[in-house]
Amino acid sequence: MSINRRKFLAIAGGTLALGVAGKQTLKVFAEAEARKSEGFACKRWAMVVDLKKCHETEGCTKCIEACHSTHNVPHFNNKKDEIKWIWKEKFEHAFIEQENEYIPSDIKNKPALLLCNHCENPPCVNVCPTQATWKRKDGIVMMDWHRCIGCRYCMAACPYSSRSFNWREPRPHIKQLNPDFPTRTRGVVEKCTFCDERLAKGLKPACVEACPNKAMVFGDLEDPNSEIRTMLGTNFSMRRKPELGTQPEIYYII
């Protein structure tokens, strides 16, 4: 059999590529299988934030602490380097252009909880040049911190300021390391992932679990009998910047 060097290299390269691709596919199937057996079998995750309930405990930051400690979110003491997955913002900033002079002061002056909206049409996913952020079938907008090149295009594209960038080495700024969750390196973007790692185990997101007032309800929009659907069906709810067509999956009951 005659085989020259070039041909050999082509075949070897092709086999290697197929092998890698095949392994990846198997891995994805295995993960999906695992999720089905132990986690929620879900179609479209979403969250309702009931601001009235949230305001019952003034100055509460339990959800923020739970999220940030679970996910090894570093704590910087300045706005410039700041990293946050979930945070509080005054109404006029959270619902910009929707405020008016006469809205009740308990709405106006009290904060709203903000996090990634896991949009149905996520602009961040559209612009990413490496597919390091993508939309999962169950609605979660995910991040691959190993693929992200740190171009920050997703941050320019996000209308909700939901994304943070590791401007500096994050590890020294993690208060207490959670060994069960990865830390990030400097130079990559990060954000809320709806606790995909907890959902896979059948647990609710950390923030939802930590809330003492049950102000956050997490569930499947595709299931008409779910608690979240009942809440949305019986209360008037708002979303942030609905006019942009991103279809946020975080709903607010004011």
Binding site: Q131, I149, G150, G187
Partner: peptide, 23 residues
């Protein structure tokens, strides 16, 4: 020089993304 992870810049060509104007 603007990239957070300059050594990964080849990812733009390893995972070509026609959605992205940057590609």
């Amino acid at each position: 020089v603007d990239m957070g992870q300059p050594l990964r810049i080849v990812n733009v060509f390893l995972y070509p993304s026609p959605n992205s104007p940057m590609f």
